[in-house]
Amino acid sequence: MPDNHSKNIATFIHLSTFSRFIIPLGNYIGPIVLWMVNKDKSEFVDTHGKQAINFQISILLYTLILGTISIPFFIFKVFNGLDFVDFHGFHDFHINIGKPSPLLFITGGLAFLAIIGFILELVFIVIASLKARDGELYHYPLTINFLK
């Protein structure tokens, strides 16, 4: 059973990922610094630190993949929609509003998936923090174990 100090450090490791809203790359810097300083003091802290860092790296990888998939759809839609406004003088001005492109639906679906992923990430971080506070181990779902 971990002591209170180890529980607090493990909780702060998970919560330090929220520092990205204040410091760029804080979701990597915070957990790495806390984990590196305290990993030798407790196996509990070491496990939670590795989990938090692995989860953040996995989220980065998933975001890069999702972005790489969605960028071509966005670019094709932009270049396809350049004739949205036709202006041939004030006597012949009209806006072309036609059927939405399937690319728009695909890009919108990927954006919706990214928003759901962001919300789930926040939920998983809070759950991991609460488990660490209670002295339990927590393994983030869909995490690739880069640090073992």
Rank of each mutant, 00 (worst) to 15 (best):
D3S: 01
N4Y: 09
N4I: 14
N4P: 00
S6W: 04
K7C: 15
T11S: 07
T11R: 04
F12S: 09
H14D: 11
H14T: 08
H14E: 13
H14L: 14
L15G: 05
S16H: 00
S16Y: 02
F18Q: 01
F18W: 01
S19Q: 03
S19I: 13
R20L: 14
F21D: 00
I22Y: 05
I23G: 01
I29T: 05
G30D: 05
G30P: 03
I32F: 15
M36A: 13
M36H: 07
V37C: 08
N38D: 08
K39Y: 09
S42E: 14
V45W: 08
D46N: 05
T47F: 15
T47P: 00
H48W: 09
K50T: 11
K50P: 06
Q51H: 07
I53Q: 03
I53D: 06
I57S: 04
I57R: 00
I59H: 03
L60H: 03
Y62H: 04
T63R: 00
L64C: 06
L64Y: 02
I65A: 07
L66W: 01
G67F: 06
G67A: 08
T68Y: 01
I69N: 02
S70P: 00
I71L: 12
P72H: 09
F74V: 15
F76Y: 11
F76A: 14
N80S: 14
N80D: 11
G81M: 11
G81S: 15
G81L: 11
L82K: 10
L82R: 11
D83K: 12
D86A: 12
H88S: 11
H88G: 13
G89W: 05
H91A: 08
D92W: 02
D92T: 05
F93G: 05
I95G: 05
I95S: 06
N96M: 13
I97H: 05
P100A: 10
P102G: 07
L103F: 08
L103H: 07
L104M: 14
G108H: 02
G109E: 08
L113H: 02
L113I: 15
L113W: 07
A114F: 05
A114G: 07
A114D: 02
G117R: 04
G117C: 07
F118D: 00
I119K: 03
I119L: 13
E121P: 00
E121Q: 10
L122S: 07
L122K: 01
V123A: 14
V123M: 09
V123Y: 08
I125E: 06
I125T: 10
K131H: 09
R133Y: 12
D134G: 01
D134F: 00
G135N: 09
E136S: 03
E136M: 02
H139K: 05
H139A: 15
P141G: 13
K148Q: 15
